[in-house]
Each structure stands twice: as structure tokens, then as C-alpha cells.
Design a protein around this nucleic acid. Sequence first.
DNA 1: CTGGATGCAAAGGGTTTGCACGTTT
DNA 2: AAACGTGCAAACCCTTTGCATCCAG
Lengths: 131, 131
Amino acid sequence: MNQYRNSKQRENILSYIKSVKTHPTANVIYDVMKLDFPNLSMGTVYRNLQILSDQGEITKLDFGSTFDHYDGYTKEHSHFVCTSCQKVYDIQVDFPKREQVQKTTVHQIKGSLIRYYGLCQDCMKKMKGEN
Amino acid sequence: MNQYRNSKQRENILSYIKSVKTHPTANVIYDVMKLDFPNLSMGTVYRNLQILSDQGEITKLDFGSTFDHYDGYTKEHSHFVCTSCQKVYDIQVDFPKREQVQKTTVHQIKGSLIRYYGLCQDCMKKMKGEN
DNA sequence: CTGGATGCAAAGGGTTTGCACGTTT
DNA sequence: AAACGTGCAAACCCTTTGCATCCAG
């Protein structure tokens, strides 16, 4: 197996994702990192996101759009995705305990993904304003 | 707005998806349809999947792999995805009622997505056999 | 006849990868 | 010095789209 070495790029990417409450895409991360590393390439961003994901430092989120988002908050939690502006919000819900769900299936559960869709507060306000 | 016309291709695609318990990808659907329509093109498959999805006849599922799956069972239910063989199984779980979740957030919830990950029964057996 | 549906092929668009060079250990 | 990381650009791969033709209503 490979050993990971220090890399300024990877450190910065990680600290950026951890520092932000949004769930940035690879492209957003690339743009931000560009400020510190003018020669940065997309390949490096993707490679490091993959490594950080493998290390469990971040989580790759897939919201059905064409690109993935990355989340630095690895504690199990759920998301609310606005179907209008595509923003992603963290929400905390009491979903069934894993042991309980485990009873309903023969398969071995190791993780879950819980997501809600709808209109976020901002978009609701905008819509009211337009009427 | 467009009016949909009858098309043998679309009919067949729909009845295939409805008849199957798996959650086929566009490519699988294409291969199966090829038997009936040797000249079928991928464009037609995708266009029809889009239309059927718009009509609410099927649901597009995104499991984070590079391609999408389609589900003909539109009643709200959740999925179990095997992280080893990538198979998708339907499971029925008592997740929190929407009204309850709604109380925990300022955003307006319109839908949800609940998914569990782990090892399916088949893969568990295989792994035991290998030890 | 009119406008949606199809086939074909090319274009899209996010992600991955090969390779030579740069860095960390 | 050995091996991982980076930049660059090309390759990938699933999906979308333009266009001429076909066909349902």
C-alpha cells in the first residue's frame, strides 16, 4: 500500500473543506485553491479529494447533479437539498437506529444516507417576492 | 408543452422496467431493447427514460457510481446498496414522518431519499466461503 | 400534413490517467 | 536515491444534442 506524504496542496484542500459550511464541488475547490497555487491542475484536486476521501477526512456527496460535492463534516448527518438553487444544508433528524433497521433486512447494514429535498428558506422568500 | 405520442420503443422500455425487480442502468436497458429493436440508439433510450421520468412512471436513481439506475417502483421506499457487488435491493423502513422532520428545519421539505449501504447476503456468503 | 420520435454520429462535461518533472522522506 | 505528488493534456465514459428521416394523430 502507498504511504501518503505531506503536500501543501492536499493540506490546503483539506483545511478549506473543513473550514467551510457549504459543500463545495471539485470545481469550486479548484478555483479557491488557484489563489494559493496558480499552477494547480484539476488532476491534483481530484487525486487529493480521492485520497482525503479514502482517509475518511472528507465525504464525497452525490446529489444527482452532474458533479459531486465534498463534505468535511464526517459525523453522520443528513442533508437538505434545495431543488431550486441547489444549495445544500445540514439538518439533524432522528432517523431510525441502525439496529432497528437491521431487523428488517437480511443484508448487513454498514451505513446510511438520508436526504431531504424541497425549497430552502431563501428561495421561498424570493418566490413570494415575485408574486 | 409537448404532447407525447405512442412509441413502441417507449412502451417496451416502460414495461421492461416495470417488470423487473432490479434497478437497471440505461446501458442494460439498451442491451435488452436491442433484442426487439436492432437499430435502437442510445439517444432514444435516454430520451425515453427522461420522458418516462417526467411522467412519473419511473424514478431515476443515482447511487454515486458513474451511471444512473432506473426504478419502476414509484411508491416511496428505500434502497439497500451492496458496496461489494453494487446490487440494489428494495427495503421498507419506518423513517420519520415528513411532518415531524419539517419541524426541525426552516426549509420546506418536498421529498426524501433514504438509502442504506453494506454487504448483501450473497456477498457475505461468498466472503465466508473464501476464509 | 404537422410535430413528436428515432438513428446516427458528434459534441458535452465532469472525472481519470499517462508521463515527465518536482518534492518529500 | 526511491517513491509519492504535481502539471499538463489527452483520454474516458456516460449522457446529451443536432439533424435528416420516420411515423403517429
